[in-house]
């Protein structure tokens, strides 16, 4: 196992919007010991259907199993595994950063450079929001390194396959 190459994969699942669905999905992840980096769930264009997006890592065989096991869940309508290069992804993060009042302009500068928006601001802390690709969110968070991050909430990745038109 250890010598097999580890990969990451985005799995997008459409499920019946019923109580307990998330328990079934989360339960599968734990009992089969899969490595899930993030999980995000939300409504779709059809209110009887929920989309769950997972970022999973493992070797090729494990990742194939993950897809098949999700397909097996009764509430699952469809499973797409989207190769990274063909995925449109998005994520949102809220970050509360502490700052010394003397460095206020420094942080405001950083916020602009990193393309973040200000959600609220106090005397010695500021809450920022960044949305976009996972890479963009990572870059923004890393860019805040001169300051102390007090709290952070990330939604986890959501994804859709690139449509042919969107690819051009």
């Amino acid at each position: 196992m250890a010598d097999r190459a580890q990969m990451r994969k985005i799995i997008s699942i459409l499920v019946r919007n019923k109580p307990g669905v998330l328990s079934h999905v989360a339960g599968l992840v734990t009992r089969r010991a899969y490595n899930v980096e993030s999980i995000a769930a939300g409504p779709t264009e059809d209110n009887s259907i929920t989309r769950i997006t997972l970022v999973v890592s493992g070797d090729e065989q494990v990742l194939e199993q993950v897809t098949k096991q999700f397909r097996k869940l009764i509430d699952v309508i469809k499973v797409d595994d989207i190769p990274h290069e063909l995925a449109m992804t998005g994520e949102l993060a809220l970050i509360t950063v502490a700052f010394d009042p003397s460095r206020k302009s420094e942080i405001m500068n950083l916020v602009n450079v990193l393309g973040m928006s200000v959600q609220s601001i106090g005397l010695d802390s500021i809450t920022l929001q960044v949305a976009g690709s996972a890479q963009r969110v990572d870059t923004a968070i890393n860019g805040l390194y001169p300051f102390e991050i007090r709290a952070m909430a990330r939604t986890g990745l959501v994804a859709l396959p690139v449509t042919p038109a969107g690819a051009q």
Binding site: P19, G20, S23, H24, G27, R31, I74
Partner: peptide, 16 residues
């Protein structure tokens, strides 16, 4: 029992 039986059933229901 709904939660308990998730991993040991093909499917399960709690009828509310």
């Amino acid at each position: 029992i709904y939660g308990i039986s998730i991993p040991i059933t093909k499917y399960n229901y709690l009828i509310k």
